[in-house]
């Protein structure tokens, strides 16, 4: 499937959908414990990472609070 991650195209091979948890793993997202995930413009609460499904065409933004800017 094709996703847009942080404004850039990202392909995930051999999969049509994934949970947010599995996607963080698949993309080897660093410090996943501290990331906020926005799926198609909506912030996903951490407790529902396991059962929120990401599908082909979805757009995701990852947000860390540890960075420098606001």
């Amino acid at each position: 499937m094709q996703l847009t991650v942080n404004g850039r195209p990202a392909g995930i091979e051999d999969k049509d959908s994934l949970s947010v948890t599995a996607l963080l793993d698949e993309l080897k997202v660093k410090d996943a414990l501290y990331v906020t995930v926005e799926l198609n413009g909506e912030i996903i609460d951490r407790p529902v990472f396991d059962n929120t499904v990401v599908k082909d065409g979805d757009s995701l933004e990852f947000l860390y609070f540890m960075g420098g800017g606001r």
Partner: peptide
């Protein structure tokens, strides 16, 4: 830029992390 914007985890400067 991604790290500053908080899109990616990473080190910047020891005052921050």
């Amino acid at each position: 830029e991604d790290i500053f914007r908080g899109r990616k985890a990473g080190q910047i400067y020891t005052r921050l992390n």
